[in-house]
């Protein structure tokens, strides 16, 4: 096994151990309430980057997948009493199928047309949810989550740990994609689709796979959300801020590697949470916009590229 893989696995073990231990050592549940949102965005940014970063297909429909995960999980739990892990698994499968469908319908178009088509997905799904009374329609639905198990001290801590496991799974998947033949093929597609196809890369099939994986992760990120808020409504589940953050965070962190979206999400989501508490929740979008403009102008490769260049310069 490569040294980087061993380090990655060690890192995961440490993060997971902290995720299970911290709820028993940190008393204030608010930190876990905030931490949940940060980890949710780590998952969203990581999921988005599989298609948007590796393959270069800018997906404006992240909120559509997230919202689908939110509603499917809420519906399965309230209607059938399905346990949370199964709700998350079902959301992942549904997200993958939705991703395949979106990919099949849109992947033959490129650039701005693809982006517009994916934006349409959010509008379509939100409209569908608005018109289904079993999902609460426009007024939303209340979801009273499961009692936390004995290994977790409270609901906020439980949601946090669940989201941490999802985030770790998402990052591990993204890393596997990145270092495998899938990632190499997707990066070739990003560089030149014709050249990739003429090199034997099944570009359409690979892009469909990326759509499915990305959709699965994005929907999975939404699955625990009903239990976190105890209430879901279309406006928040398919919110613009989710779609915007899904793009902004990988761009700020860097899209070439799995670490970029993680870094971008940790940074931006943390600052957003601090701004929400100390200034105003309404300033979030303005803040994201300003940071995004600054990065596009001064560090288009994102933070990881910036660090990489500094390291390169230091070595030489």
């Amino acid at each position: 096994m490569r040294k980087t893989s061993i380090l990655f696995i060690a890192g995961i073990v440490i993060v997971l151990a902290l995720g299970f231990l911290l709820p028993w050592t940190v008393r204030n549940p608010f930190y876990f309430f905030v931490g949940y949102v940060v980890l949710q965005y780590v998952t969203i940014a990581t999921g988005w980057n599989i298609l948007g970063g590796y393959a270069g297909y800018i997906n404006f429909g992240a909120a559509g997948f997230f919202g689908a995960g939110v509603y499917l999980s809420a519906f399965l739990f309230t209607t059938f009493g399905l346990p949370l892990p199964l709700c998350i698994l079902a959301a992942a499968v549904f997200g993958a199928v939705l991703g395949l469908l979106m990919g099949y319908l849109t992947l033959r178009i490129q650039g701005v047309y693809f982006a517009i088509a994916t934006l349409g997905l959010v509008v379509v799904l939100e409209t569908i949810v608005h018109n289904i009374s079993a999902l609460g329609g426009a007024s939303g639905m209340a979801v009273y989550g499961p009692r936390p198990p004995a290994w977790s001290p409270g609901p906020s801590q439980y949601n946090f740990t669940i989201m941490l496991v999802i985030a770790v799974a998402a990052v591990s998947l993204a890393r596997f994609v990145e270092i495998s033949w899938i990632g190499r093929g997707l990066r070739a597609v990003r560089a030149s689709e014709d050249a990739a196809e003429c090199s034997g890369v099944p570009t359409l099939r690979l892009k469909l796979l990326a759509c499915a994986l990305s959709g699965a992760v994005l929907a999975m990120a939404g699955a625990p959300y009903p239990f976190y808020t105890s209430f879901v409504e279309p406006v928040t589940a398919f919110s613009l801020i989710i779609g915007l953050n899904a793009i902004a965070m990988p761009l700020i962190g860097g899209t070439k590697s799995w670490a970029g979206p993680v870094l971008g999400a940790l940074l931006l989501a943390s600052v957003q949470q601090i701004a929400t508490v100390t200034i105003s929740s309404e300033l979030n979008i303005l803040f994201v916009g300003l940071v995004l403009i600054a990065f596009v102008a001064f560090a288009p490769g994102g933070l990881s590229d910036l660090f990489g260049r500094r390291q390169g310069r230091a070595k030489s």
């Binding site: 033949w181 190499r184 990066r187 030149s192 050249a195 090199s199 034997g200």
Partner: peptide
């Protein structure tokens, strides 16, 4: 020329080898 940018010279050749 359409190199697979963002990859090393070696990786450029590993792409076709992954699939052929």
């Amino acid at each position: 020329p359409r190199p697979f940018t963002g990859m090393t010279v070696l990786e450029n050749l590993l792409v076709p080898l992954d699939y052929c």
